[in-house]
């Protein structure tokens, strides 16, 4: 029961950019295995970004590694909502040759 409440709070806090502990690997069951990982926080939530502009090449470039692909959330730690905005912006930037579709 108490776990439920905690989860709810966790979710509620998410859009305010407050890092809260997420139950580690399957609700804290196998806590002893694997290495300790730092909980990633969405940097857009922290900066309270509501809109990601496709013209902001400097910002977008942080999310395209050498190959030119879009960096997945699981690596960057960006939240779902912001990742959606980010992909949209990157795709728009690609369209007008601000960012590459591919890079070799």
């Amino acid at each position: 029961m108490s776990r439920n409440i905690e989860r709810e709070r966790d979710f509620d806090n998410e859009d305010e950019g407050v890092p809260e502990r997420r139950p580690q690997g399957g609700g804290g069951r196998g806590g002893g295995r694997g290495r300790m990982r730092r909980r990633k926080v969405c940097r857009f939530c922290v900066d309270k970004v509501d809109l990601i502009d496709f013209k902001d090449v400097k910002l977008l470039q942080n999310f395209i590694p050498e190959r030119g692909k879009i960096l997945p959330r699981r690596i960057s730690g960006v939240c779902t909502a912001h990742q959606r905005m980010l992909t949209e912006a990157i795709k728009r930037a690609r369209n007008i040759a601000l960012l590459p579709y591919t890079a070799d």
Binding site: G17, V18, P19, R21, R39
Partner: peptide, 13 residues
Amino acid sequence: GSAPARGGDDSEA
């Protein structure tokens, strides 16, 4: 910077 809200969770990292 929302540090008090986090409490002791930092020890995890």
